[in-house]
Design a protein around this nucleic acid. Sequence first.
DNA 1: TATTGTTATACTCTATAACTATA
DNA 2: TATAGTTATAGAGTATAACAATA
Lengths: 169, 169
Amino acid sequence: MAERAQYEELARQLSAIGAVKRELSRILPHDCPAGSAAVLTLLGRHGDMRMGKLAELLAVDMSVTSRHVAHVADRGWIERLPDPADRRSRILRLTDAGHARLDELSRSSSQLFADRLSDWTDHEVGLLSHLMGRLRESFGDCRATQRPPCPVEAEAVHATEPTTTRTPA
Amino acid sequence: MAERAQYEELARQLSAIGAVKRELSRILPHDCPAGSAAVLTLLGRHGDMRMGKLAELLAVDMSVTSRHVAHVADRGWIERLPDPADRRSRILRLTDAGHARLDELSRSSSQLFADRLSDWTDHEVGLLSHLMGRLRESFGDCRATQRPPCPVEAEAVHATEPTTTRTPA
DNA sequence: TATTGTTATACTCTATAACTATA
DNA sequence: TATAGTTATAGAGTATAACAATA
């Protein structure tokens, strides 16, 4: 349990983090907005899946998912295969073009992070990801972080970053 | 410097954090969307300021700021005073009604955080805020975190959370 | 001529609700 | 009757560009 001032500060950070997201989206190709990139990323990471599953992973309504999926399907980056087990649903799968596109996206965004986060350590990056995942989890977004190995908050922190760590801002 | 997989994970978390923001915005009054709440919060925290300064703090374009400000001004939550030093600009100030509104917002959002983050420690909340602020800072959002005392990443972590800390997810 | 702020326009992302087709 | 997915519609947030008033 934390105090009110801390919650207010967290709310403020959440409100302002959009600036970072917009910065990231600025490097995306014009025919691949953030929603499309997210679809490709999740299919690349988790493999073939149905719409409902993808909607869960995206943490948005299925209707929204449907639109994003239509967008990437129109561009040939994924295919929607029939599901033999349930003819109402469709199996989503990255095409070769989709894999290629995803690889480009991944490279360019990683490059941007590498530029901007050059003074961050491995561990700090992992810690932030981990805490953000936990935040989503705490807010009911169950699919938040299942795979990520979890960067071990406590020990690792001061073990790897004894010097860089206390940068206040 | 971190590796590509870590950057991808961070990108994923940034992409999905919107679900938490939407959850927070769901408890806002119908006449006070997130943009308005942000204006009130920043004026409450930093005191009177001009449009340009507010736009910086919000980390959005001045045109966007102008719209949010018009919204809250229309509802009597802030007043736009003439700036004696420069007649082009206006000084923004919370009214009594604005302070009251802000207090309600702060209480309800803190309540939500207290509910959802009941198993988070003070330090973890502070650490997440701190890292998010640093992320914004690294992405060129200079106004990211000036005031926040900085929860001292390293030592404090394992000092206060030796047990709760390793929750993987 | 440069700057502060406003307004018009357009785009993205989102949710709700109505609808189709299966189960 | 319930579920998987699509589509129509509406609302919030954002940016760019054109514009007004003042420096």
